[in-house]
Design a protein around this nucleic acid. Structure first.
Lengths: 353, 353
DNA sequence: CTGAAAGCGCTAACAT
DNA sequence: ATGTTAGCGCTTTCAG
């Protein structure tokens, strides 16, 4: 620690300007200068100070990302996708969790801006509560929302096309013979919850099937099992249940099994997201896959486009999802099941603890 | 963007020094000065530039963390714990994933150091391959390893007491009547894998039970189901199988169920980590819980202690785990099962997608 | 092609 | 109590 470009310049017998030029390679330097600087760097173990560079350049090569919670597999997927897209960019990611709380979300945004991130990617935790902080941040620095958005239309957004996703899900179970369907999702506190319920209702109406009143809780396993019990307690089961995310679906599956209900023979279940576990649960879950890589790529592209000076209208980009048919839905002629569902090695790997 | 402390000083009609003092509150200022500065700040929407402060202070208020992969629930737990401990500290976390690859790990460490993080927390991905990068980093900045460590003893470490953990697991199944046990874990490429196998073998020997050759793959669901099939293919099943982590255990459970084996009636299964899903799988998993909060707290404490000038010997701190008895192991007199296992709302919540 | 010097925004001596 | 100023490490005009 502590060897600066001055030390390098002195050791190489050149000016700091030359050392800097040699280091960055962005300007011509004599061959001998380059040579001697390189040697000095190696000998002294010089490491450029990114902080000083950032101060000088007024840009940090860093973008901030804030998601509601990193414990949630879906957010983990998006974070990984963003990280993946950033790979060879030289841009680093400053990751924060808002813990589903507008207050900590606002504070995280504040410190990210103090650190002068070059851009911000955020999945706002609360459709209403997040509005001031997000809007305020968007005024200072390029910002794009992913997955969830605030109700105010003041900032760019990219996410999955929820309407299309629900259409895919509903049409699939209907094609499998379902005549009555129910939606199990989240209370309408964030945009995804609302969009998905809407999408479901429209798709069901279009398909002309009977729809039961939706069950709305939160996006957790726990709610999934509770919802399953609620369903079991009713007079009769619907032919299919469409879930707001995979966690709910997996919890539901569990409750149904405990209740002695066979899936998909008696009822079909469809999830949403396609988290890693969906392929490994029992039976493997039919679900709508979120195009996370595409979302990440698009978000980053948008971020690069934003110019704080000429404010162009906010964009909303919805990306088409894909239905992944596995074994919790009744087979449909002409639609083949996703292979690799049942077994080993089909998940991205990972080598924990 | 762009309003500096100079602007504030000018607007308030005071010197930058006074403005700085008023802002930091670290030195006395006249009441009127404080007042006028506060107003100027509010009017101009001043935001201190953390980059400039960092350059001046030679400290960033940031620590870097690098884990093999954020998709793995266990690492996610540690990251959350560290974040949680950092909460009211004003210290921010710079999170990176090494993707289980020493090369990217080295590169992440390099950029973290360029950004002048005040400390580093790392779970090295490879017992051998990570050695040079970790040692090199530890030479520049306070560093502590969590969970995994490099074989060279040159850097601090804090993690779970694997030997004790395996003793807990083995003694528990033996108390439940098991006479033959097998270990399903990971190939010995990282410290945890080795420590856990060792711990298992010692504990089994001490308990005087018959042990079958261990099955070693990786820490994934996929390997768990494969191992389950391998077990099924043998002449007879062991009384109990102890797994290297929960993912393996959950995969194994699935394979056993498909094979028609009843758990825990015919065989007991014990996991390791106690990830959120362990309480929700079927049946709920008996497992050894990692004391992640304690590990995070201890790591941070250690980090604060390290003085780069006086090199004290490296420390290794192993923290005691706790056995969480659920329903994949045969009941033992006097040991009560973990309640809340079967149902709703027992997980930390989370409100995804 | 190379060097001298200014300045990014901030804080801490060092005056006053 | 307040103001002036140097300087953190770097890049980039501007001269030569």
């Amino acid at each position: 620690m502590g060897v600066t470009i001055h030390d390098v310049a002195r050791a190489a017998g050149v000016s700091v300007a030359s050392a800097s030029r040699a280091l960055s390679g962005r300007r011509k330097v004599g061959a001998d200068v380059a040579e001697r600087v390189a040697r000095a760097v190696a000998e002294l173990g010089y490491r450029p100070n990114a902080v000083a560079k950032a101060l000088r350049d007024r840009t940090t090569g860093t973008i901030g990302m804030v998601v509601p919670g990193i414990g949630n597999p879906f957010f983990t997927m998006i974070v990984e996708a963003v990280e993946h897209q950033l790979q060879r960019t030289g841009v680093d990611l400053l990751l924060c969790a808002s813990q589903y709380t507008p207050e900590v979300e606002a504070s995280r945004l504040e410190t990210l801006m103090a650190r002068r991130v070059d851009g911000l990617i955020i999945s706002p935790c609360d459709m209403e509560g997040s509005v001031p902080a997000v809007l305020n941040a968007a005024r200072q620095v390029p910002l794009v929302q992913v997955d969830r958005y605030i109700e105010d239309g003041g900032a760019d957004w990219v996410g999955v096309d929820d309407a299309q996703a629900l259409t895919l899900a509903v049409d699939h179970v209907v094609a499998g013979g379902a005549r009555s369907v129910v939606f199990v999702g989240s209370r309408l506190v964030n945009s995804s919850a609302r969009l998905r319920l809407d999408g479901f209702e429209r798709a069901a109406a279009r398909a002309g099937v009977s729809v039961r009143p939706p069950l709305l809780g939160d996006f957790t396993l726990g709610w999934g099992v509770e919802a399953g019990r609620l369903l079991l307690a009713e007079d009769s089961l619907p032919d299919a249940v469409i879930c707001g995310n995979d966690e709910i679906a997996i919890g539901l599956l569990r409750a149904l099994r405990l209740g002695g209900v066979r899936v998909p023979t008696e009822v079909s279940v469809v999830g949403f997201d396609d988290v890693g576990y969906a392929a490994m649960c029992d039976p493997p879950l039919t679900t709508v896959r979120q195009p996370v890589e595409a979302i990440a790529a698009e978000a980053l592209r948008l971020l690069g486009q934003v110019r704080m000076d000429d404010p162009r209208p906010a964009q909303r980009i919805a990306i088409a999802p894909r239905l992944v048919v596995r074994e919790t839905s009744r087979p449909v002629e002409g639609v083949s099941r996703d292979r690799g569902a049942a077994g080993a090695g089909s998940t991205p790997a990972g080598d924990p603890t």
